[in-house]
Simulated scan of single mutants.
Amino acid sequence: MSVSMLSTFLKPMHPEGWRFVGIFAAVTLVAFFISDPLGWLCLGLTVWCYYFFRDPVRVTPQRKGLVIAPADGVVSLVDHAVPPPELELGSEPLPRVAIFMNVFNCHVNRAPVPGRVVKIGYRKGKFFNASLDKASVDNERNCVTIEMEDGTRIGTVQIAGLVARRIVCFVNEGRIVSCGERFGLIRFGSRLDVYLPAETQTLVCPGQTMVAGETVLADLTGEERARAGFGH
């Protein structure tokens, strides 16, 4: 098997996952002593755990004004909503894109724009299914606001889901981040909301698959109309 073929299947793993993969591997060894079928089942779960924490290289568009998807997954909502107070983006509804991540998606979160982290706010909450709209209000969440060079602010909200039980944030207030830079991770199924400036036209639609660090959500300098999806 060539190196290029290997790289297709073997992705780098984020350091956050080593402990979990180690636990799964240890359980697998014990399971094989108990029975082969149980051992093979646990081995499959170990491979899944490694796959969950994968951290592939992404090529991020660098054109000024682009807002890039901060998470892998499927767009579950494109609407207007009042941002959580932790973002400090005001009390008026803003354009929102919600990305739902299932347990098979890569869960490393990336900065949607370059700028300075001006606000981080964590709030405890419930663990409803992250695909539900009420999850943005009731679920455990971590809010990160990034201010761009021109003063424009973009809000990202990491939302825990039905299975997720830990939100991890790698940055602190005052940190300068690049577009596409890793800023967090949510363990085992979740959602990430992006709040855009008023009047921003979104360039994605519900049902569309996102690639963190690569898919363009919006162009703050462009005049394109909002996108609409069509069934086949």
Score class of each variant (00 low, 15 high):
residue 86 E to T: 13
residue 87 L to N: 11
residue 87 L to M: 13
residue 88 E to Q: 12
residue 94 L to C: 03
residue 94 L to E: 01
residue 94 L to F: 04
residue 98 A to D: 11
residue 98 A to K: 11
residue 99 I to G: 05
residue 100 F to S: 02
residue 101 M to E: 03
residue 102 N to L: 10
residue 103 V to M: 14
residue 103 V to P: 09
residue 104 F to L: 07
residue 104 F to P: 05
residue 107 H to N: 00
residue 109 N to L: 15
residue 111 A to P: 08
residue 111 A to L: 04
residue 111 A to K: 10
residue 116 R to E: 15
residue 117 V to M: 07
residue 119 K to V: 13
residue 119 K to H: 15
residue 120 I to Y: 11
residue 124 K to C: 04
residue 125 G to L: 06
residue 125 G to V: 10
residue 126 K to T: 13
residue 127 F to Q: 01
residue 129 N to R: 12
residue 129 N to M: 11
residue 129 N to Q: 13
residue 130 A to Q: 02
residue 132 L to M: 14
residue 132 L to T: 04
residue 133 D to H: 13
residue 133 D to T: 11
residue 137 V to G: 05
residue 139 N to P: 04
residue 141 R to E: 01
residue 142 N to S: 06
residue 142 N to G: 04
residue 143 C to W: 06
residue 143 C to M: 06
residue 148 M to I: 09
residue 150 D to L: 04
residue 151 G to A: 11
residue 156 T to D: 06
residue 157 V to P: 08
residue 157 V to E: 07
residue 157 V to A: 13
residue 159 I to T: 06
residue 160 A to K: 09
residue 161 G to K: 05
residue 163 V to N: 01
residue 165 R to C: 04
residue 167 I to S: 08
residue 168 V to D: 00
residue 170 F to Y: 15
residue 170 F to T: 11
residue 172 N to K: 15
residue 173 E to H: 01
residue 174 G to P: 12
residue 174 G to Q: 02
residue 174 G to E: 01
residue 179 C to I: 09
residue 181 E to N: 04
residue 181 E to T: 02
residue 182 R to N: 00
residue 183 F to I: 12
residue 184 G to F: 06
residue 184 G to H: 08
residue 184 G to D: 05
residue 185 L to Q: 08
residue 186 I to T: 14
residue 188 F to W: 03
residue 191 R to N: 03
residue 192 L to V: 13
residue 193 D to H: 04
residue 194 V to I: 06
residue 195 Y to G: 14
residue 197 P to Y: 09
residue 200 T to F: 04
residue 201 Q to E: 02
residue 201 Q to K: 02
residue 201 Q to T: 02
residue 202 T to I: 12
residue 203 L to D: 01
residue 204 V to D: 03
residue 204 V to R: 07
residue 205 C to W: 07
residue 206 P to C: 04
residue 213 G to Y: 13
residue 219 D to F: 06
residue 223 E to M: 08
residue 224 E to T: 07
